[in-house]
């Protein structure tokens, strides 16, 4: 089978989410990549070095700069004449584009796969990960999004892919990019971090969140996450949200501070290797999944912990 992988990037470098997707694609067959963007030749060169990669299709055009689904999907449909499957990381970019491609190809997308059982059979979470379905497709072409935490990352070196330019289908004239507010952070990215400290509603306000959670994260070199309640209340930006409808993470250590453990939150972090919970309610559901729990007031515990580390 010939697979195509959507390379997630910012026109400068390959994003980590691509690497797990390459691993999933390799289980299906030959791996080709698509780098679509503007002024992104360096990304293609970097992508060609990913272990196991064959061809890298480079579509470099102004209309592709911001990965607008309306402009990218027709390009992918053309490339699918010569490929059997297209795989996207299950990022917001992947989730935005993949179904548009699937509908144009008249195939049913398989979202968020956890494993490749065979060339037509996959497992995927449903009901916020409270059930795992094994699904078999009868479609001729496969359109798949891949859950990053479920596959190892392909090595970023050792590959010797060849870069081949392809032309895009131009601007569909349906949408334009108007701007972005992307937070710059010196912390590790949530989905790539080894340690995550997450805060919940219990933090009460933005000042507390920053004053309590961040120093602990700094001590541990950790990324910072949050529950939906903390995001909705404006303590932190939306991209901090961990859960069914936010980011899916699986770090070595996940520290949940003042988070109750609703199923929608657990859906995003319960595959973490070690879960530590700090909560004043000893019956909080988070303790049912925590490896290590400490019952008490976070306003006392966390500063003391930060101090002692």
């Amino acid at each position: 089978m010939k697979t195509l992988v959507w390379v997630e990037h910012d026109n400068k470098s390959v994003k980590d989410a691509t690497l797990a997707t390459v691993t999933a694609a390799a289980k299906l067959g030959e791996v080709h990549l698509l780098v679509a963007g503007a002024g992104c030749a360096a990304v293609a060169d970097e992508a060609a070095k990913i272990a196991g990669v064959g061809k890298v299709h480079l579509a470099d055009a102004a209309a592709l700069e911001h990965a607008l689904a309306e402009n990218v999907a027709p390009l992918i449909v053309t490339l699918m004449d010569n490929h059997d499957a297209i795989l996207f990381p299950a990022t917001t970019t992947g989730k935005n584009i993949a179904p548009r491609v699937a509908a144009l190809l008249d195939v049913m997308q398989i979202s968020d796969i956890l494993s490749v059982e065979s060339a037509d059979t996959f497992t995927r979470p449903i009901y916020a990960g409270n059930a795992i379905a094994t699904v078999q497709t009868s479609d001729k072409k496969l359109v798949i999004t891949v859950r990053g935490t479920a596959f190892d990352k392909a090595a970023t070196s050792g590959g010797s892919g060849t870069v081949e330019p392809v032309s895009g289908s131009g601007d569909a004239g349906l949408s334009t990019f108007a701007g972005a507010e992307i937070a710059e952070s010196t912390r590790p990215e949530l989905t790539a971090a080894k340690v995550i400290v997450s805060g919940g509603r219990a933090l009460q306000n933005s000042e507390n969140f920053h004053a309590i959670i961040e120093p602990l994260a700094d001590k541990l070199g950790a990324a910072v996450g949050a529950s939906r309640a903390a995001v909705d209340a404006g303590y932190v930006p939306n991209d901090y949200q961990v859960g069914q409808t936010g980011k899916i993470v699986a770090p070595e250590v996940y520290i949940a501070v003042g988070i109750s453990g609703a199923i929608q939150h657990l859906a995003g972090m319960k595959d973490s290797k070690t879960i530590i919970a700090i909560n004043k309610d000893e019956d909080a559901p988070i303790f049912q999944v925590a490896d290590i729990g400490l019952v008490g007031d976070l306003f006392k515990i966390v500063p003391e912990l930060t101090e002692k580390l």
Partner: peptide
Amino acid sequence: REVDGGLETVDLK
């Protein structure tokens, strides 16, 4: 739009 890195704005026809 809520995207992985933060927010993005698009103008749609």
